[in-house]
Structure formats: structure tokens, C-alpha cells
Design a protein around this nucleic acid. Structure first.
Length: 157
DNA sequence: GCCAACGTTGGC
DNA sequence: GCCAACGTTGGC
């Protein structure tokens, strides 16, 4: 079992959006390092859902990797903003995984909070200039970040 | 909207 | 294989 952090701009796709669908293809990743991390994901891995480029940025909740990496077909669609003419069905350049909603935090754990935690100093997210949109999280970091959170109570059924 | 930091591209 | 130019990310 591995742990991850994955960024999305909430105006494009948010934790709330994820909670409304059974699963979601994590498309549009166009960075080799991030792609390689996705390729090493296994079904059942857990990931933090990070809201980026918003006020305030931070971790919104948890999701599960529901499907391992497969070709990102948005790269083949000339009408997609993620189109890349160098990726073909015969030789796909970009990959994606499917993710599934798990839990939403009662409150966002803000980037500001995370930066203040000495125990998270090695987390790429808080390091200056790091722009990786997908990064590994160690088990220790994962547990520590979870200890900072509280969850929304389950919906009454 | 600014811009630092970083990744990618392509000429040489 | 170097590196300048350019584009993007994403916090502020």
C-alpha cells in the first residue's frame, strides 16, 4: 500500500465534484514525473485530494485509487485542452488512473498549516518551488497529516 | 495580476 | 549534450 497526494484546481474539479461520481479518471497530467508516479500506483492505494490555485490551497480529503494506469485518451482528442499530437493510441505518451471518493475533511488542512509542521518538512508539497502535481507521501507523513484532520460525520442513511 | 521556480523544446 | 528561450504552475 502506497500513499499519494494529487493536486487539482477546484474550479476545474473539486472534492465535492468527486463525491458526486462513482469514480473519476484523473486526466490531463502532462508531466513525466507525475505520470511515472501514476504508473506505479496500485489499486487500493490512498491519496490526499489537494486543492491548488485557490484561496486557500490545502488538502480537502481522501480518495482511493480505483484503477491502475491506462492511456489518457484526452491526449488524442484535438478538441480537448489536454490534446497532445505526440501521443497516439499505438504509442500513448500520457496515462491516468481512476480515483474514488473516500472521505472529506470537515475543514481543509491548509497549505499554511502544513508548512508550519516541522515533521512535514520533507514533503515535496511544502518545499519551495515544487510544482509536482502528483507526489508520494510516506506512511509517517500520511498518519501525521491525518492526525491534523477531522472528518465530516457520515451522512445519515 | 505578478513572478519565481521549474520543465520542455529545439538550435547548435 | 548544452543551454537559451519559452511556457506553465501555483502561491501570493
Amino acid at each position: 500500500m502506497q500513499y499519494w497526494l494529487m493536486k487539482s484546481e477546484p474550479e476545474v474539479f473539486s472534492m465535492d465534484d468527486l463525491s458526486k461520481v462513482p469514480r473519476e479518471p484523473w486526466d490531463g497530467v502532462r508531466n513525466y514525473q507525475a505520470r511515472n508516479f501514476m504508473k506505479s500506483m496500485k489499486k487500493g492505494d490512498l491519496a490526499f485530494f489537494y486543492h491548488s490555485n485557490c484561496k486557500p490551497p490545502g488538502i480537502a480529503g481522501l480518495m482511493t485509487i480505483a484503477k491502475t494506469a491506462y492511456p489518457d485518451y484526452t491526449a488524442w482528442d484535438p478538441n480537448s485542452p489536454y490534446f497532445d499530437e505526440k501521443s497516439s493510441e499505438e504509442n500513448p505518451r500520457w496515462f491516468m488512473v481512476d480515483v474514488k471518493y473516500k472521505k472529506r475533511f470537515k475543514e481543509l488542512i491548509t497549505l499554511d498549516e502544513l508548512k508550519q509542521e516541522k515533521k512535514l518538512a520533507d514533503l515535496p508539497l511544502v518545499r519551495k518551488g515544487n510544482r509536482l502535481s502528483i507526489m508520494p507521501v510516506t506512511a509517517q507523513q500520511w498518519d501525521y497529516i491525518l492526525s491534523l484532520s477531522s472528518f465530516l460525520p457520515p451522512k445519515p442513511s
